Simulated scan of single mutants.
Amino acid sequence: MSSHPVPGAGATAAPRGTARKLTVVVLGLAALVTVMLCAFALPNVNGAPHDVPVGVTGPAQVTRAAEQKLDDEAWDVTVYDSPEALKNAVRDREAMGGLALGADGVDVYTATAAGPSTASALTAMGNGLATQQHTQATAHDVVSFPADDPRGAGFSSAALPMIFGGIFPAVILSRLFPGHQGLRTRIAGVLLFSLVAGAAVAAFLQFGTGSLDGNYGLTSLGLALGMAALSTTFIGLEAVLGFAGLGAGAGVMMLLGNPLSGLATGPHMLPAGWAALGQALPPGASGSLLRANAFFDGTGALVPALTLAAWIVFGLALALVADRRAKNPRRAAAQADASDATAAAVV
């Protein structure tokens, strides 16, 4: 008597709901890739000057004509009494650059360290005006990147290390010192790491690659403040929501904070709303604080420093909420049961 194999016999049947889970995962990953593309591509595609503060100086008739020519959404024009006043405004970060117009030519004053893209746009504008007047344009870089790194490559590459400097210690310390008992240790750890990492990154960029100028101690403290803002926020999110909170926070900082930081171009190259959002997030505030400390002797450092301090307070507040919740066993048990029920429903 011959036996016939039964189709599918011996094969392990897929658990119920596998197709649904696979569909959700595939669609979720596709959505994530799309969001990443939008986050990184849109700022570059729409990158152009937006309300850039610039100055003009020269004879009244000429400056009036230049002011009318520049009166659009790209430029915010201020008339200065002299080229020296214009240069001082650039050093004090009241203007990103400007044009000194005269009968014998056009002087273009830029601050490459404040934003290379804006400096390039101003230079091109000065060359165009000089061509119209049949004169020559002379460029003056009032605040430039250091001679060892004239393009600011090291400065521009600091965004991701600062973000990862906030993510990695939060993840590792959450694994090594989990739960309520390890919460204070995690907070102390990320703050100590931020100080050490800030000093190390500042030393590498200033003394290793020559990408930064300014006071080393002030620069390193600014970098530490930025990393602390990220890491304490991640620790707080993890304490309240678990690793899902940490992952969500890291996603926001990577997908929004990094491309909207304006570190490479300066925030004025982003549309107003996107620029404001970028500067409100820790990566953008950290970049602005680093720029102020490294190239402008701390001018313009107050707002980003306060922004980062607010994020630290936010992270510590989340940690405090988690700490108090852990001290209330009844509430903690109820929330744990709710979490288990949610997980069971998903499965």
Rank of each mutant, 00 (worst) to 15 (best):
F204L: 14
V77L: 02
A41S: 13
E67T: 15
T131C: 01
G97F: 00
A11E: 14
F164D: 03
H4R: 14
A244F: 12
L129S: 07
P150A: 06
M227N: 09
V196H: 01
A103P: 07
F314M: 10
N44A: 12
P282E: 07
V62T: 08
L86S: 09
F155M: 10
V106H: 05
P59N: 11
G179M: 02
A137N: 02
V106P: 05
D107T: 14
T307L: 11
V171H: 04
P267N: 07
V79I: 12
D107V: 10
S157K: 14
P169T: 03
A301M: 10
M227R: 06
T63F: 04
D107F: 04
E238A: 06
P304A: 09
S3V: 12
G165I: 05
G47K: 05
G189A: 07
P304S: 12
A103H: 09
V142R: 03
Q132N: 08
G17S: 04
I187N: 08
S261H: 09
N44L: 13
A203L: 13
A41H: 09
H134R: 14
G262N: 09
I172R: 01
W311T: 08
G165K: 06
I172W: 03
A322M: 00
L173D: 00
M162H: 07
L205M: 11
V52W: 01
L256K: 07
A317L: 12
A294W: 00
G98S: 04
M227A: 14
A130V: 08
A285N: 08
A158T: 13
T135K: 12
L27P: 00
E84V: 14
G58W: 02
A74N: 05
R93W: 13
P267C: 06
L241M: 12
F168C: 10
T131G: 11
A139W: 00
L256A: 15
A11L: 15
A30H: 02
F193H: 09
H140P: 11
T110D: 01
V143L: 08
L176Q: 15
G128R: 15
F177T: 13
L122M: 13
F177A: 14
V190H: 05
T118I: 15
L263A: 15
P161L: 14
S117K: 02
S3G: 12
G17R: 08
V252S: 11
G102F: 09
R91N: 03
